[in-house]
Lab assay of single mutants.
Amino acid sequence: SEEKKKAKERLERLGASSELARELLDRANGNAEKAERLLRKLL
């Protein structure tokens, strides 16, 4: 979806690899905010 694509791009801008961004979104069930929080914990 367009929303998921935007979320993935945002995670990548924050420093996630394409693969990591995809994994985070999967774990967050597509929830962009939750995926971002997970990423911030990792960085």
Score class of each variant (00 low, 15 high):
9 E>K: 09
29 N>S: 09
27 R>E: 08
1 S>R: 11
14 L>A: 05
23 E>P: 00
22 R>D: 15
17 S>M: 03
18 S>C: 06
42 L>D: 04
10 R>P: 02
15 G>V: 02
26 D>Y: 11
22 R>T: 14
32 A>C: 08
6 K>T: 10
7 A>Q: 06
36 E>H: 04
33 E>K: 13
36 E>S: 04
6 K>I: 10
1 S>A: 13
3 E>A: 13
14 L>H: 03
20 L>W: 06
26 D>E: 14
7 A>K: 07
11 L>F: 02
24 L>D: 00
31 N>K: 05
30 G>Y: 08
5 K>A: 11
30 G>H: 06
8 K>R: 15
19 E>Q: 12
28 A>R: 02
14 L>C: 05
19 E>Y: 06
35 A>V: 02
18 S>K: 11
19 E>W: 12
42 L>I: 12
24 L>C: 07
40 R>G: 05
41 K>P: 05
27 R>D: 04
43 L>D: 03
43 L>G: 04
22 R>S: 14
28 A>K: 01
42 L>H: 07
39 L>M: 04
32 A>H: 06
17 S>W: 08
33 E>R: 13
8 K>P: 03
43 L>W: 09
29 N>V: 04
30 G>C: 03
42 L>T: 05
39 L>F: 08
15 G>M: 03
41 K>E: 15
36 E>D: 02
1 S>H: 12
1 S>W: 13
24 L>F: 03
23 E>S: 09
24 L>S: 01
34 K>W: 14
21 A>F: 04
9 E>S: 07
38 L>Q: 05
41 K>T: 10
20 L>D: 01
37 R>D: 13
39 L>H: 01
12 E>G: 03
37 R>T: 10
33 E>Y: 10
21 A>H: 00
25 L>M: 07
20 L>Y: 03
35 A>D: 00
28 A>I: 02
26 D>K: 13
11 L>M: 04
6 K>R: 11
31 N>Y: 03
2 E>A: 11
38 L>V: 06
17 S>K: 03
19 E>S: 08
13 R>K: 12
32 A>K: 04
15 G>N: 01
39 L>S: 00
36 E>A: 07
5 K>C: 15
40 R>I: 14
8 K>L: 15
